[in-house]
Write a protein that binds this DNA or RNA. Structure first.
Lengths: 341, 341
DNA sequence: TTGTAAGCGTTATCAA
DNA sequence: TTGATAACGCTTACAA
């Protein structure tokens, strides 16, 4: 029974060295003779030593913890992002304390308190609950992903370019009218640029367009009904015209496609459909949907690099915080599948 | 600039109490007079005290950490399970250290080492990498979810009952031939019982059936091709017969449905389709797919309860570990949608 | 009701 | 290359 835990003191006693030397064995092994390294290694093994990182953290201040606050794991975008972030362990060995926010201010405040109490070295925020100003006031390394980030570093998809790519493809495919289906996005959130990019492209190419911005429900069922109304409206408004429909995400696009397919038994020539996100549903739809692929792996990688940059700075004796938050954009990729010619 | 962190010693000096009293203020406030409580509260506020849980843990041994090792977040089943587990913070205030396993033995060993080094109080395992015997050897509270768990506590969906429900519905709907599409599941994993439940039900009702157990690919594309072959085979083998097809998950079912739909332009009377999992794709398919719903919230809840049971035991002076691992089953629910009459 | 002092298991500083 | 000794910030007997 390995009841009592063995500590550096035990190893020291067992080998005749001091605790300091044992500590050195772990943190700077080359400062010991090879012979002594082996002695200690042997003792470690024989006593079945288990390290205690908490004690280490208390002594040296480096928790190797990164906090993550994420809105939900229901949307593929978020779960895949979390997946990528967690997978960065292989490269950096940071450990992640993960909280799902569900948008309650008090709860999220608790999360922040806990994260601070556990001495996280950095924080990645995807939730929208707190303004970046408040987050910045914690004075720890932070990176925001796809959210308002005036006062903190951030990584976003280049939403503008994504919309430009989508609209351009629809125009190139001879669509006579372009329609963008979206919710009324607040100006300060990054996704607002999808609307701008779409509009600018249509104007630039002198192509007629319509912006359908409205509440699109919050459950699948309500969303379905909302999109259905949108479909009926479009289908009636532009008979015989080639319609390029750019929907704000793949879930919307899939519903729209299903509605078209159910009415016509196929996807007629006069409909072109583009989604956004490249989530699985775009690929698994009755006809694989063309979409704008957010490069989640790139976003995650960039976010970690940006965070580590700041965390490394904090480890210096005289940390010089960034004078200005750094903002990065990742260009999305156009994924042509079967709903665009 | 709040540079130097304030500790109990500072509060003690400031208020004239001892560190012990400050500690008591947090852990047993009622042992202080109301007046002194207020004094301390005031000091805490004025000095802007930030607690340090790591120091606390080192002193009292209770990390409030639970480790989670999960195979991936790509499958909705896993991401939703993680979501539910993380959400249990609201009830129990355990913090979660999350790792995604990706099935590499060495990496997963690292995860376990880290988790032990951070003194987790308990562990939830969904990955299949290590046998339960090895996990049990760590002698910490563990709960396995939907995996081999001979030597550790576990929570599983009642896969047998799920398959019985699916097969029974297909039989009740007058299917003349029942087909189960699955991969060759190893006997020791819980999902094996889906096959047994299906077979037993068919036999009991004297309904002809076929088991199609074969490799179904590991990417969407290979899976699509594999299911396509299955579809062609079934479609040729039983012309004119009412076929009840029970697929091992909703992704398979969706592909199968798409193939049927593409061939016939609709779902013909002679096809009945059942999936498994109740993942979003079942609902978002061209026709909403009937499925067996895993009660992920129940599973998660039960898992946490089972873990907390063990963790609480460990906190006693004389912990008596469970003599036998406890295994719980959660009955899934039949979700009738539009692919079964 | 409050205080003293010895931990918890490391690392950091300074000496040797 | 190695060792004493004092942190790190909190808890917990044991005393008062």
């Amino acid at each position: 029974m390995s009841k009592k835990k063995v500590t550096f003191a035990d190893i020291a006693k067992y080998t005749g060295f001091s605790k300091t030397t044992i500590s050195r064995y772990f943190n700077d092994p080359d400062s010991l003779t090879l012979e002594n390294q082996e002695k200690i290694a042997k003792a470690l093994d024989e006593l079945d030593y288990q390290e205690n990182k908490l004690a280490k953290v208390l002594a040296n201040g480096k928790s190797e913890f990164v906090g993550i606050i994420i809105p939900n794991l229901y949307l593929h975008y978020y779960s895949e992002m979390l997946n990528q972030l967690l997978s960065s362990y292989t490269d950096y060995h940071y450990k992640f304390l993960v909280f799902v926010s569900s948008d309650q201010k008090e709860l999220e405040q608790q999360y922040l308190d806990e994260l601070m109490a556990y001495k996280i070295e950095g924080l990645i925020v995807l939730s929208h609950t707190f303004p970046s100003e408040k987050l910045a006031s914690y004075h720890i390394p932070i990176v925001a992903i796809e959210r308002e980030a005036e006062h903190i570093c951030s990584v976003n998809t280049d939403n503008y370019m994504g919309a430009v790519q989508a609209a351009t493809l629809l125009i190139r495919n001879q669509c006579e009218i372009l329609i963008h289906v979206n919710v009324p996005v607040p100006k300060q959130v990054p996704a607002y640029n999808r609307i701008r990019g779409f509009e600018d492209t249509c104007i630039e190419h002198h192509v007629p367009y319509e912006l359908m911005l409205q509440d699109l429900g919050s459950t699948y069922e309500t969303t379905y009904e909302a999109i259905k109304k949108v479909f009926v409206k479009i289908d009636n408004a532009y008979p015989g015209k080639k319609k390029g429909v750019f929907l704000a995400n793949d879930t919307y696009a899939n519903i729209f496609l299903n509605l078209v397919f159910q009415k016509y038994g196929t996807l007629p020539e006069e409909y072109q459909i583009m989604g956004f996100d490249n989530s699985p549903i775009a690929n698994e739809a009755i006809i694989p949907i063309s979409t704008i692929g957010q490069q989640i792996d790139q976003i995650s990688k960039t976010a970690m690099e940006l965070l580590i940059l700041q965390m490394n700075e904090m480890k210096k004796r005289q940390p010089v915080p960034l004078s200005e938050p750094i903002h990065k954009q990742i260009t999305p990729v156009l994924i042509r599948r079967n709903t665009t010619d």
